[in-house]
Design a protein around this nucleic acid. Structure first.
Lengths: 363, 363
DNA sequence: ATTCGATGTGTTATCGCTAACACAGGATAA
DNA sequence: TTATCCTGTGTTAGCGATAACACATCGAAT
């Protein structure tokens, strides 16, 4: 009696153990063929008689077989998977980019795995490594440049990994490069404000020091210069991104606080250009809180033209970048590189931005 | 001469070919040991003399070796990777969830791969398959329930894949389940409006028909009922999500259009509850456009309490859900399941929401 | 009748890595 | 002294799949 109980326990324990997945050979055994035939059915290549195919399909159903992508990838030396590294998935820009990449990829039979770096160098490296380790067929990198990440990226590219860069300040003979024309976008946003008669224009979203590698900021400076307006360092504000590992991305909060700093300046700006729309929205909030009118007292321009811009009060003037197009092109460049299966000449594409004028600059 | 040229071409072509990655054996050969020793160095297990370890590390550097995760995973029967499936990465909720999951995972040495379904059944299934094929150690599913996806999910769980569900209306003995208390959240949001004296309250973000499986909507109805207020179907509006494959997620646009429909109703609502903040923001936009005051003419409550809510005009009353906590718990449950390596009793956790009252309901 | 290509299936040999075991030499304990 | 453990390293055997090749069979073309 005791032993019976004990047996029952053992038995139940056994049933509880993690089921071993059936393999292609198990399926083959059930169907009464070899694993090679099953493989042919699964991959729809080679000759298989209709009769056999059905037997195999039934065996697959019966055993609820799932193929093992690791083994498959190991043997085939490809995984039909590409990786996408984003800095911050909360950004509609990133979401739109991912969507475009995914559409192209899944159209061509590739899976897409997304990794997020949260704009830190450590995670940037980790994401590159994770994807490379898993032998993805190629990687689209849409994070910002940082030293550790750039080193890792260099190694990967040199080792033959197909890579396409989106808006990252990193260049290599063997990696394609896609970006919006952030410089011109920044220039035009600023020129727009100048054309409206503004002479003291602030920039929100970077420190003057670390802004040197921010194209939007460069465009802002260039526009001032071209119009013979003085560049004033005190009009440039935002969290400094000196440390590579700081999550230096811009948020409403950042814009809000930066704007507050600008508002108390003597002879303060009459207009501001924010590095992106969330920052701009935060700034708008600070301006309203101070009891000032937009655009009468202070005009404001954002960047990215996120869907929300038309719902803010007033609607936000913003620079629209062709996000979807960037994702598409990046994916196309990458797939071309993957499918060529040998080094190709580098492709580069810079896409125009478009200023969308709304109520935050023109009443 | 001709043949020389030809040779040169061949040679250059050869150099152009995709470099073959060095394997563990190549490293072993350079270091003058066997691959097993290299493996021990790489994995920091087993005994290796300090001297040998250094030789191996040098050989790794020299050959710029990268380990092959496919082979490793195949042999070890685990990949130290978990998958996360999101419906829509543009949502701050999803971003926050992903961040929390990632923090827990990377703390325990797991990589995180994210897949996005765009709220379609097809992509839901595709994401599940892709992750399963790649033999991730477990999957966190944060997409909405749909027939095809549920079927796939069932198969996966039954085959022993560790799964944790976040906010998905799908239950299984072998899968952990985490959710915010959307029902009570919806109830309290509505009760809040009722307490303020509103008697005609609209719901934005679903059709009355398809709302039956939306907890927030159920909470809304329950609050009406409890207070003996009539439920009026004409006050419920939003895109219908009859088709599983329709990208039925809510956006500013959806909220904007839904609100417009509510505004023209005879004896229209004096308050609305929106299924999420973006929808609410769109609704706010429509209300303002109609020249009405918030909250005097129409009060509005959102859900999720995204960072933006404090920057809208007026700031948005919203139901905050503990997003970060959900992600953490989901990851912890999943890792526990993975590391137990055998079926465990199901864990379930429902987290309280909190109503944050702001200017969109109380002046 | 013979050759040939198309069709259908099986055999073999890896892909790159590591678990499990084997084994030798030296230190330690009995 | 002998048994025993700890170190350090090598050998073997797959993990689950498929590329490459081999080998039948059959009908059509020569």
């Amino acid at each position: 009696m005791l032993s019976l109980t004990h047996d029952a326990v053992i038995h139940s324990k056994k049933n509880l153990e993690k089921k071993k997945q059936p393999t292609i050979s198990d399926v083959a055994a059930i169907a009464g063929v070899t694993s090679m035939t099953v493989s042919r059915v699964l991959n729809r290549n080679g000759y298989v008689s209709e009769e056999t195919r059905e037997k195999v399909l039934r065996a697959i159903q019966e055993s609820s077989y799932r193929r093992n992508g690791l083994a498959r990838g190991l043997k085939r030396q490809r995984t039909d998977t590409i990786g996408l590294i984003l800095g911050d998935i909360a950004n509609p820009y990133a979401a739109e980019l991912a969507r475009a990449v995914r559409d192209v990829c899944s159209g061509k039979g590739y899976n897409l795995f997304i990794c997020v770096s949260e704009h830190t160098a450590r995670e940037d490296v980790a994401a590159l490594s994770a994807l490379a380790d898993h032998c993805v067929d190629g990687i689209i990198v849409a994070t910002r440049s940082n030293r550790a990440g750039d080193e890792q990226l260099l190694k990967l590219i040199e080792s033959g990994m197909p890579v396409a860069l989106v808006g990252r300040d990193f260049h290599h003979e063997q990696a394609d490069w896609i970006s919006a024309d952030n410089f011109t976008g920044g220039f035009e946003a600023t020129q727009h404000l100048i054309d409206l008669g503004h002479e003291r224009i602030g920039f929100i979203g970077t420190s003057a020091a670390s802004g040197s590698n921010l194209k939007r900021f460069q465009g802002y400076k260039a526009a001032l210069e071209k119009n013979n307006l003085p560049f004033e360092e005190r009009f440039v504000t935002g969290r400094a991104v000196a440390d590579d590992d700081a999550p230096g991305y811009s948020t409403e909060r950042l814009g809000y606080e930066a704007m507050k700093r600008l508002l108390v300046l003597p002879n303060r700006p009459t207009a501001v250009f924010a590095r992106n729309d969330f920052t701009a929205i935060g700034a708008v909030s600070a301006i309203k809180e101070a009891g000032l009118q937009i655009p009468q007292d202070i005009a404001i321009v954002g960047f990215d033209d996120i869907p929300l811009t038309i719902h803010t009060a007033p609607p936000l003037t913003s620079v629209r970048q062709p996000t979807r197009r960037q994702g598409q092109i990046a994916a196309e460049f990458l797939l071309r590189r993957i499918e060529a299966n040998e080094p190709l000449e580098r492709k580069e594409r810079v896409l125009e931005c478009e200023l969308i004028v709304r109520g935050s600059t023109v009443a």
